[in-house]
């Protein structure tokens, strides 16, 4: 042995694995030449290694089962997430109905005015594709509640945070109330609405001039869509479906202005 670092167990391991080189390798070889029992050990370790690799080689050579494809994993997760969201939404609805008494029913009874344009169809009309049903419901809810002076929202903005937090925690997916302050709109609060036996959330925003817009959200498994625009009567809406959630941003605004805000909402959810 030379004067370099003394030989260690780790050197023997590395030697067995063929991971030594240079002086270290020479030092180990020199040492092993004088220690036949250690040499036999290393031979044995190498056989173990070879045996393990031989034994397991077939497994790595197999084609990947379909269920382990990344695409399959993602699809399955989407379905699960959606299912979970539905359950949460349904639970939230029951709580809301329990706490809120008959408010939901009252909302449904109120005939919405300005029926032209956006169809108001209740109960759900199967002829409507889901996204259109979404925007129809959203417009309906928008009309019903933006005119409210005394109770425009069920849960005010401060408690809304609590609700949002709770949902986020339970759903495992951030359901934030988007920030639209750069457009001059601040969150007033939100309410829960029945939507085809499930729950939808309506968030309401207001600007300094007292103009209101609503963001309507609910679980929607109908597949992702691009932004779509719909206008009729007094209101216009952008609506889309993204990652299992349906969105409809409704206001009495020009298309361009509304689109800007819809994009902001979309981006904020994407980031979330």
């Amino acid at each position: 042995m030379t004067g370099s670092a003394p030989l260690g167990e780790d050197d023997l391991q590395a030697y067995a694995d063929g991971r030594l080189e240079g002086e270290r390798l020479l030092a180990v070889e020199a040492w092993l030449a004088e220690n036949p029992s250690a040499t036999a050990n290393i031979e044995n370790w190498r056989r173990q290694k070879e045996a393990l690799r031989t034994r397991l080689a077939g497994k790595a050579a197999e084609p990947i089962p379909a269920r382990l494809r990344v695409a399959a994993i993602r699809d399955q997760q989407k379905r699960r997430q959606h299912e979970f969201l539905r359950r949460i939404a349904a639970a939230v609805l029951w709580i809301a109905l329990g706490l809120g008494g008959g408010w939901a029913g009252r909302g449904l009874m109120e005939p919405a005015d300005g029926a032209a344009g956006i169809a108001m169809v209740r109960p759900a009309d199967p002829a409507l594709v889901p996204a259109r049903q979404l925007v129809a419901d959203a417009a309906d809810a928008h009309r019903a509640f933006v005119v409210e002076v005394t109770h425009p929202v069920e849960v005010k903005a401060d408690q809304e945070q609590h609700l949002v937090k709770w949902l986020t925690k339970r759903v495992g997916k951030p359901l934030t109330a988007p920030d639209l302050s750069r457009f001059g709109y601040s969150l007033m609060g939100g309410r829960l609405l029945p939507a085809e036996g499930e729950a939808a959330a309506q968030l309401m925003y207001e600007n300094e001039a007292g103009e209101r817009l609503t963001l309507y959200l609910r679980a929607d498994g109908s597949g992702e869509t691009a932004f779509r625009f719909m206008a009729g009567g007094d209101v216009s809406a952008f609506y889309w479906v993204d990652r299992g959630l349906g969105f409809a941003l409704t206001a009495t605004l020009e298309r361009e202005k509304l689109l800007e805000m819809a994009e902001a909402v979309y981006v904020q959810f994407e980031k979330g």
Partner: peptide, 9 residues
């Protein structure tokens, strides 16, 4: 995906 075979092993 390139790592799935060795993960399976």
């Amino acid at each position: 995906e390139p790592h799935i075979p060795s993960l399976r092993r």
